Simulated scan of single mutants.
Amino acid sequence: MVRATGKSEAVYERLKGDIESLRLRPGAKLSEVQLGERLDASRTPVREAIRRLAREGLVDFVPGEVARVAAISLGGVRALFEFRMMLEPRAAAMVTAVGAADERVLVPFRELLARLEEFEESFRLRDAAAQARSYHDFYEVSEDFDQAVVAACRNPYLARTIRDLRSQTVRLRHLSHSGPRRMLTSLEEHRAMLKAITNGDVEAAEAACRHHLAQTLQALIESLTSQDFVIGAEVHLDTAL
């Protein structure tokens, strides 16, 4: 068995990925013993991983029970997006202003715009089954955009706060992009943000970001009210790390 120091990081990454991708559903029990058996790890690295995930808000400790994957509630989602709307439009505006003064800042955003347009062209040509399989490609572009904004933001406190919220927002992405129509709408929203940033239009960048967050929140509300997250769902993980 691998030593705990190396194993804890591997267990953490696996559990985090499964929570963010919703393979581990909200409310799923996280038994240290069961997870240890499935991941070929002792209880120490499993416990450390669960505690790290709890600090990130992805795991809840229920008194008298084992840890559970944190629930996703309408109230929690609304509160999260209310906070994001205070932060991310401002960050987009700041990055746009910085980019207008320093062309080097815009390089990753221009590359992302090209990737986005290439993805859209291929996405529209695919059938429904192929479109469903390609969602991960769009997630990568979206994640790279978010990371680029954080990297270019010159306010370290703002950048750190947005970065710390990523774990909460990543797993919601799989709910907000619940179909090809929303995927294409989100694509258009990202194009609007990228064009505003690369064109140096501060007000448009801020407005486009706020619009994207509002539309994403609405998509999440619709998705959450139409899905049933089973409390205590069984844990299904691959054993190899």
Score class of each variant (00 low, 15 high):
60 D>K: 13
61 F>A: 06
62 V>K: 03
63 P>F: 14
63 P>G: 07
66 V>A: 07
66 V>Y: 09
67 A>F: 08
70 A>F: 09
70 A>R: 15
73 S>Q: 08
74 L>V: 14
77 V>M: 11
80 L>Y: 07
80 L>N: 07
81 F>C: 06
82 E>K: 14
83 F>L: 10
84 R>L: 15
84 R>C: 07
85 M>P: 00
86 M>H: 11
86 M>C: 02
88 E>R: 06
88 E>I: 03
88 E>V: 10
89 P>C: 04
91 A>I: 05
92 A>W: 08
92 A>P: 05
92 A>G: 05
94 M>C: 01
94 M>P: 03
95 V>L: 03
95 V>A: 01
99 G>R: 05
103 E>A: 15
103 E>Q: 04
104 R>H: 12
105 V>N: 09
106 L>V: 00
106 L>K: 01
109 F>Q: 08
110 R>F: 07
112 L>P: 09
112 L>Y: 06
113 L>I: 08
116 L>Y: 04
119 F>E: 04
120 E>W: 01
121 E>M: 06
121 E>T: 10
123 F>R: 02
123 F>P: 00
124 R>M: 08
125 L>T: 13
126 R>I: 00
129 A>R: 15
129 A>P: 05
130 A>Y: 10
133 R>L: 14
134 S>F: 12
138 F>S: 00
138 F>Y: 13
139 Y>I: 05
143 E>R: 02
144 D>M: 03
145 F>N: 03
145 F>H: 04
147 Q>W: 07
147 Q>K: 15
148 A>E: 01
152 A>H: 02
154 R>T: 10
154 R>G: 15
154 R>D: 02
155 N>P: 00
156 P>L: 10
159 A>K: 09
161 T>A: 13
161 T>H: 02
161 T>N: 00
162 I>W: 04
164 D>C: 05
166 R>Q: 09
167 S>N: 08
167 S>L: 05
169 T>H: 03
169 T>I: 13
172 L>H: 09
172 L>Y: 12
173 R>F: 00
173 R>C: 07
174 H>K: 13
174 H>I: 04
175 L>Y: 08
175 L>P: 06
176 S>M: 05
176 S>R: 09
176 S>K: 09
177 H>R: 07
177 H>F: 09
178 S>A: 10
178 S>C: 02
180 P>S: 15
183 M>Y: 01
184 L>K: 03
184 L>I: 12
185 T>K: 07
185 T>M: 03
186 S>P: 00
186 S>A: 10
187 L>G: 03
188 E>F: 05
189 E>D: 15
191 R>F: 02
193 M>N: 03
194 L>K: 10
195 K>G: 00
198 T>Q: 03
